[in-house]
Design a protein around this nucleic acid. Structure first.
Length: 429
DNA sequence: TGATAGTCAATACT
DNA sequence: AGTATTGACTATCA
């Protein structure tokens, strides 16, 4: 805590200097100038139906009037409180654009390393997003705000989707007993999936970030681990690493247990073969081709079992999964998992099972990306001109402030040593 | 218009 | 805290 306090003192000192120096006094024109890089982004998205839009505006307003240290500091507090004061996952979804975001209607290209205070989007009808869900790789590198450009302004507010300890933070409460639960599913590293997606299933290396040794990491460690992982990016997908996460993938079409004869469970096929289909329902069902993702007949019972197992395995609450992956309520998910209807009897409800199924197929990294939304889209970086320190604001439910070295942020955003990045004080909320 | 499916939100339960 | 249950509501369809 002393370190945290020192960090605070450091910032306070900067802010004091800022307030005392007339030339550094924040001027609203510059303030807006500092943000204007992103105004097109902000205005191009509907802010309605979105409490985080309100949070963004509030930040803007708060910082606009902050002309002294106390005002600034209190603004930070209000940001933290206002943006995340209460956990409303149903409204915290769509700013996350990293890959598998089924609820996201925002245009691709917003999930850059630094995106500024972008309002959230309303949820689309479920039927409109399944394809996006299925092609998650296309939304991950764009609009990287150049910090160096922004720093020259008065100050900069950024949403930080890069640095995210998010994954670890999200899962940190859920890490208990990971080692024991790892046996519930086969840890096969490369599943010869019949749907042609097996090639991406090797790269589930990142699980170790929140696995057996992930839960007790400090924020700073999480930061580093995750950024490193993000930096590796797609390389993950082409490397057969067979890491601890290798057990994440479901077994489809009964092709499972590869290399793991000790697997205690025997799963039926997720995708029903043609002989399993009820004759009455087979007219629109096809055997899934590679990447078809839409027309396959899903073994709902099997999907339900595997989703249940995965949620248990990683201690992911139903509410989180339901909200962020399925855009459904906890009660709905619970019912679907416990009482899955046969595929042939489903109508629009098939979409929900498709989402579950697709989530099961996602590389682990993408799965977790889909689950870490709330924090990632509220993460922000505040950089004050002339300051060497940046504030990273992470509202509730993960509320905290972190201090970052601006230079480090600018130059090596994905490779900053943890020790330089996070001096934050936890437990502020 | 009634039957059915799908979902939510409240609430009970563990 | 997380999960299960349930009544109410809407949408769809015959």
């Amino acid at each position: 805590m002393k370190t945290a306090y020192d960090a605070y003192r450091c910032l306070a000192k900067d802010l004091d200097a800022y307030a005392m120096n007339p030339e550094m006094t924040m001027d609203i024109g510059n303030l807006h100038g500092g943000i204007s890089h992103d105004q097109d982004l902000m205005s191009s998205h509907s802010p309605h139906h979105n409490r985080n839009a309100g949070a963004s505006l509030r930040i803007h307003q708060d910082l606009t009037v902050a002309s002294s240290r106390s005002a600034m500091v209190s603004s930070m507090a209000s940001i933290l409180d206002g943006a995340g004061g209460e956990y409303r996952p149903e409204l915290s979804l769509p700013l996350h654009h990293a890959m598998s975001m089924p609820c996201d209607t925002s245009p691709p290209g917003m999930s850059g390393t630094y995106t500024t205070l972008t309002p959230l989007q309303p949820l689309p009808p479920i039927s409109t997003v399944s394809d996006k869900f299925h092609h998650p790789h296309h939304h991950h590198h764009h609009h990287h705000q150049r910090l160096s450009g922004n720093v020259s302004g008065s100050f900069t507010l950024m949403r930080d989707e890069r640095a995210l300890p998010a994954m670890n933070n999200l899962y940190s409460p859920y890490h208990k007993d990971m080692s024991g639960m790892g046996q519930s599913l086969s840890p096969l590293a490369s599943s010869p999936l019949g749907n042609g997606l097996g090639s991406i299933h090797n790269a589930q290396q990142s699980l170790h970030n929140y696995g057996a040794h992930g839960h007790d990491k400090m924020l700073s460690s999480n930061f580093d681990a995750h950024t490193a992982m993000l930096a590796r990016g797609d390389q993950h997908l082409s490397r057969g690493l067979g890491g601890p996460a290798a057990g994440m993938m479901p077994h489809l079409n009964g092709m499972h247990h590869t290399g793991h004869p000790s697997h205690p469970q025997s799963h039926g096929p997720v995708l029903a073969s043609s002989r399993d289909r009820p004759p009455s329902s087979s007219s629109s069902s096809v055997t899934p081709g590679a990447g078809s993702g839409q027309l396959e007949e899903i073994n709902t019972k099997e999907v339900a079992q595997r989703i249940t197992a995965e949620l248990k395995r990683y201690s992911i609450p139903q509410a989180i999964f339901a909200q962020r992956v399925l855009c459904r309520s906890q009660g709905t998910l619970s019912d679907l998992l416990r009482n899955p209807k046969p595929w042939s009897k489903l109508k629009s409800g098939r979409e929900t099972f498709r989402r579950m199924w697709k989530w099961l197929q996602e590389p682990e990294f993408q799965r977790m990306s889909a689950l870490r939304l709330a924090e990632s889209h509220m993460d922000m970086i505040v950089i004050l001109r002339g300051f060497s320190t940046a504030l990273r604001i992470v509202p509730k439910p993960y509320g905290r402030l972190e201090m970052c070295a601006v230079e480090a942020l600018m130059l090596r955003p994905c490779r900053v040593p943890v020790s330089q990045m996070a001096l934050g004080w936890g437990g502020i909320m």
